[in-house]
Design a protein around this nucleic acid. Structure first.
Lengths: 192, 192
DNA sequence: TATAACATGTAACTAGTTACATGATTGG
DNA sequence: CCAATCATGTAACTAGTTACATGTTATA
């Protein structure tokens, strides 16, 4: 999947691993994140398979940049993935839910503290992401030419942004009602 | 993380790999899923590290069962994980959002078909999971003794179930509004 | 007669995380 | 002077997926 994300960003314009990391952190991060080391490794692999080519741009006062460009084969791989429908339901992978699920061994106040912490983390994270998404959008606005492709891109990005907004709102609401439910009904008692 | 899920289920009662797979599929699946092969591999590893022990129960008309029991060290590892707060925000990993994000290269009808398909998949999946969760709850109700621990467990499971419900409702709402937004605003035009 | 449920596992591959490693420039 | 930004990468480890492999019994 990271391959697709990388091919997707490179379909807009050639970029370095460093720039790809910024792009991911400012836009796809909340639904597909990646570590720097994995980005570089995947770039190398994609180049080996002929989906990308790289050239080194020497710089005087900074380290040289390795700029990756998507090839025709890469573009083909990418559009073929786009055309192939996703046939299965998406599942979450959320360690907080695992923790709540098994927390009957924990004390009431510890669970509540954990839930309140996540409430505050999610809030901070949402503010940060909204700003970075806006920033990412305007940055890319400067780099993409005005066209139907451009207009459609922004329409889709706005819808994806809304998913993030709705998701964070839902999570906050769930945290609030769960905190209340535990405050009212969790039986406080040393179990071991 | 799968380690924790396995230790958690084994903290209730000894179980085989096969039973663990059923348990996961009927309860934690939508927030932490695992394939059969990975469950067996993780069990082996946990036993090697002394967190579990296994005994073979011979059966006459069926293959023998390898029943895993959590050790004191395993219980310690598990409760230590429970006590350690999760300090970072949770991110999604959703290939549908990746697809929508990059779909400006696709034709209007193809995107709409994909979104409508996901709407129907999520619906079916939600119905299935609700039933399996109910089933999983009653099964475990039969196996856990009635106590404060038991009552707290069911309170927490009900809250986790509600997360699933709210999540699926949110996704459906987002799919509907996104379909509408694309129907109304996506510019239909051959781009290449 | 076919398939679902019971039951266990391995092999090969793909993906992701953590930690290490280097080094210049700019701004506070 | 310290932290941030720019810039690239490797090594070791951990986790997850796909496919292969075997075999019985009950039920529809």
């Amino acid at each position: 999947m990271l391959k697709i994300v990388i091919l997707g960003f490179l379909s807009y314009r050639p970029q370095t691993g460093y720039e790809l990391k910024q792009n991911i952190d400012h836009s796809t991060k909340y639904f597909w994140s990646a570590k720097q080391s994995q980005i570089y490794r995947t770039l190398k692999q994609l180049e080996k398979n002929g989906l990308l080519v790289s050239t080194i741009e020497p710089q005087e006062d900074r380290p040289d940049r390795r700029v990756y460009t998507i090839t025709e084969a890469g573009m083909k791989e990418f559009t073929e993935w786009l055309e192939k429908p996703i046939m299965d339901a998406q599942y979450l992978r959320d360690s907080l839910l695992v923790k709540v699920f098994f927390s009957a061994y924990s004390e009431k106040e510890d669970i509540l503290t954990q839930l309140r912490l996540q409430h505050s983390l999610a809030h901070t994270e949402y503010i940060r992401l909204s700003e970075e998404l806006k920033q990412g959008l305007t940055e890319n606005q400067a780099n993409l030419p005005d066209s139907p492709l451009f207009n459609n891109t922004f329409l889709l990005w706005e819808n994806v942004r809304q998913f993030g907004e709705m998701y964070y709102e839902m999570v906050q609401k769930w945290l609030e009602q769960t905190i209340q439910s535990i405050e009212e009904n969790y039986i406080e008692e040393k179990m071991e």
